[in-house]
């Protein structure tokens, strides 16, 4: 079978096609990660991809690296152990909105705070897909889920605001529609020596879309195009940003990375 070089180099072809539903945005985001790894020319033997549980977290099984599909919410905690114990590895974390922001919220905060060199990509589909469409921390208020049959009364979580406030040194958001842009943002995340948080807005036509009358996959992809605006444009022309979701690079700062700080402690004793 013919496959592209990106697929040949980064995926376990015998595991494809993946389990995601027709039109699910996760495949687009996973592809973007692979392109970013290829573009950066990382040594694949030194790349570790870690995930938690949920639709997003099935990604590592398809990816031809050292891959770890952990427990629900705990990807960042496992990844922290990996990076801390072996800092020369490139550790990429793939997680979902429920995985990262609900059950794994505490790990997210602290991974940001430590500024440990992990590149985290959240596949945010605004719903718990694997369990059949329950509302998640990123389901918009008043939207529906199987556990919000009368509308979601929760306030929705802005994960980029959270990551920035918690101390992540690189924070960005884009969407499955903006596949080239998110590829570049992931590359920037891989370049950043510190904790990088990239939110990839996905589409879930099967559960979120159907439950909220958002149309099919194509309609939902169009919405990602039409209902988002780059933060640089929004800053110049705020009137264009009304009712739209901001995308782009929100934060990029340089701070000493966590394992590098620990190395300095080890160095104290090597000199002894």
């Amino acid at each position: 079978m013919k496959v592209s070089n990106v697929v040949k180099d980064n995926f376990r072809e015998d595991k494809l096609p993946h389990i995601w539903c027709p039109g699910c945005g996760h495949g687009i985001l996973m592809h973007a990660i692979a392109r970013a790894v290829s573009n950066k020319g990382l040594d694949r033997d030194k790349v570790v991809v870690v995930s938690g549980i949920g639709c997003s977290s099935r990604a590592p099984g398809y990816m031809n690296f050292n891959t770890l599909h952990t427990t629900h919410g705990r990807a960042l905690a496992f990844a922290t152990g990996i990076k801390m114990s072996q800092p020369d590895l490139h550790v990429i974390v793939i997680t979902g909105d429920g995985d990262a922001a609900a059950i794994g919220g505490n790990h997210l905060i602290h991974a940001c705070r430590r500024n440990i060199d992990l590149t985290t990509i959240v596949f945010n589909n605004n719903i718990y897909g694997m369990t059949g469409g329950q509302y998640s921390p990123t389901t918009p208020t008043n939207d529906y889920g199987t556990t919000a049959p009368y509308g979601n009364i929760d306030k929705t979580f802005d994960l980029c605001d959270l990551a920035k406030a918690a101390g992540a040194t690189y924070v960005a958001r884009s969407t499955a529609y903006h596949a080239r842009i998110i590829e570049k943002l992931i590359e920037n995340g891989l370049d950043n020596k510190g904790f990088s948080f990239i939110e990839g807005i996905s589409v879930c036509p099967t559960y979120y879309g159907r439950k909220n009358k958002k149309g099919n996959a194509v309609d939902m992809m169009k919405s990602l195009k039409e209902d988002t605006i780059d933060i640089r444009i929004a800053k110049k022309k705020p009137e264009l940003a009304e009712g739209k979701m901001l995308i782009g690079e929100f934060h990029n700062s340089e701070e000493e990375e966590y394992t590098a700080r620990y190395d300095k402690i080890i160095d104290l004793f090597e000199k002894e």
């Binding site: 770890l68 952990t70 905690a77 496992f78 922290t80 152990g81 990996i82 990076k83 072996q86 602290h110």
Partner: peptide
């Protein structure tokens, strides 16, 4: 997280 990171360390 303590348990998770321990397992992560063991994997390397």
């Amino acid at each position: 997280a303590g348990m998770a990171a321990t397992l992560g360390g063991a994997l390397t």
